[in-house]
């Protein structure tokens, strides 16, 4: 196996184009999968030395997150706290401090486990993904990318994410077996734009309810254009339970998850509703 440590994105893309090697982000999943034999890459392109991919910054009304930003960096970023709160919340509980220090948001997408902690938040926040290959760049909504199989073509690099900063408020909640080092059994992220107390452009995303995290456009529409209050919350609870019931069908985990999602959804949404519950 060959190992490359490119210093720039162009160099990385060039190697990917010619070598059939796999991109290595933080490695917290890939290193494990290589050891168990689940993945047997022909080569590795370590992105860890490309500092431009680690940046978290605000450009022209958009929050730009490099794919190699770690969960710890995102979870400590003031900008992410203010502008992408659901993502910030997801970064607090993912794995453990050690894993958050190493695992990256781009790697979370590349690995794309059903329980990936970062993806529901990114979906709810309306993130676009920026992909690059030697041929050029492609920018597309995350939900579009998540509908592709395979997720990425050989040689495609996840450069980062654009998150629109349109004043949306967002929240995230996760249900795990324990309070640290817990794989999400259910996760819910919600984002809402508020006109006074009326909701607009509501986006609800779910994790660990199927093969990949997904955005429920129907539920978002249902909850948009209404007063944000407990009544809306209860309406959402019933709907989200229906979505989970449909998504899980007869899976063994279904009877529990379709009930428990109520509490998770409630927690995600109440973290947005201003104090007092309106």
């Amino acid at each position: 196996m060959k190992y490359f440590q490119p210093q720039s994105v162009d160099e990385a893309l060039e190697i990917a184009h010619t070598s059939e090697a796999t991109f290595l982000a933080g490695g917290t999943d890939l290193v494990l999968h290589m050891r168990t034999g689940k993945v047997q890459p022909l080569g590795l392109i370590d992105l860890g030395k490309i500092s431009v991919l680690r940046e978290i910054k605000e450009i022209e009304g958009s929050l730009e997150i490099g794919s190699m930003a770690t969960f710890a960096e995102l979870g400590k970023s003031e900008l992410v706290f203010r502008k992408a709160h659901a993502l910030w919340q997801a970064c607090q509980t993912m794995g453990s401090p050690q894993i958050r220090n190493q695992a990256t948001i781009g790697g979370n997408l590349g690995n794309c486990s059903p329980a990936a902690d970062g993806l529901p938040a990114l979906l709810a926040l309306g993130a676009e993904v920026c992909l690059s290959t030697k041929a050029g760049n492609e920018i597309l909504p995350l939900e579009s990318l998540l509908s592709r199989t395979p997720l990425l073509e050989q040689g495609a690099l996840i450069r980062g994410f654009h998150i629109p900063m349109n004043g949306q408020k967002s929240g995230f909640a996760k249900l795990g077996r324990r309070k640290a080092l817990a794989i999400a059994r259910l996760s819910v992220a919600v984002s809402v734009q508020l006109n006074g107390s009326r909701t607009d452009n509501v986006r609800v995303a779910l994790g660990a309810v199927g093969r990949r995290a997904f955005l429920s456009e129907a539920l978002g529409q249902e909850l948009s254009g209404q007063e944000l209050n407990n009544e809306l919350l209860e309406k959402g609870v019933i709907e989200v339970q229906r979505i989970v019931r449909e998504a899980l069908g007869t899976r063994a985990s279904a009877p529990y998850k379709r009930v428990a999602v109520a509490g998770v959804f409630r927690e995600a949404l109440t973290s947005i509703i201003p104090e007092g519950g309106q």
Binding site: G27, L44, G48, I99
Partner: peptide, 27 residues
């Protein structure tokens, strides 16, 4: 598999599980 933390070391000022990091990544 990065669950127990017994292999924790400090790398560039941050704790990591040294069982989940390739030696080459630490270059």
């Amino acid at each position: 598999e990065g669950e127990c933390g017994a292999c924790t070391i400090i790398m560039d000022g941050k704790t990591v599980n040294s069982c989940l990091v390739l030696a080459a990544q630490a270059n």
